[in-house]
Amino acid sequence: MLEITNLHAEIDGKKILKGLTLSVGAGEVHAIMGPNGAGKSTLAYVLGGRPGYEITEGSVTFAGQDLLAMDPHERAAAGFFLGFQYPVEIPGVSNVQFLREALNAQRKQRGEEPLTGGEFLKLAKEKAGLLKLDMDMLKRPVNVGFSGGEKKRNEMVQMGILDPKFAVLDETDSGLDIDALRVVGEGINAIMRDPAKGVLLITHYQRLLDYVQPDVVHVLAGGRIVKTGGPELALELEEQGYEAVA
């Protein structure tokens, strides 16, 4: 459902992605691992449509559409979700308020009826419960004063509410304590494990993959996929490091 072909991208004149090719089918979970600075977040941002990147070559197709031709909000409405490595703090804007507006904007773009305040709150409560995030936190300004782990759980609550078809999760596991890691892992499974959905999990550690078992593991280094394998590749990497394996 996501086809990335020979993707080249640069920022401020610096080439970061250098011919990246990757394909995730429906019902699949792929993990991307790779050294710091390899271009993992860059890939996530380029897929999400963050301004500032120049795509110099290549293509990305999502559910048959040209993903790179869409604005970020159109990508969201098409069912694409980006879980940020560093979720942004937005003072003065409440989580529930913006999420309801965002969800209804997505629904409008898809020709669906908007959710009422009551329907939305019910949904938000259910997803907050799933991720064990206090509802009060959802009423607070977006990520302001949240701990690192709370921010990541908030990302997953948002994913639960928006119910995307495809999620790119950029180090959603970093900053989580051991219990939170399990809650988030189970949350990802509950929300995204579906024959019609797909996930690209960017992570540095096997721990998350114990809960969310990947079908395919890729190593991203120097802006390209340098190795692809099954779940055992993540274990190998953890034991031996990138230098030896990739």
């Binding site: 999400g48 979700f81 979720p87 507006e101």
Partner: peptide
């Protein structure tokens, strides 16, 4: 804040709505 605008857009808010929400928070 461009980062905040992108964050809001990534959740599905069209640019005008996202900016309006930010201005609202600012003057509040």
């Amino acid at each position: 804040d461009e980062q905040a605008l992108f964050y809001l857009a990534s959740r599905g808010l069209p640019p005008v709505e996202a900016r309006k929400l930010m201005v609202r928070a600012f003057i509040a």
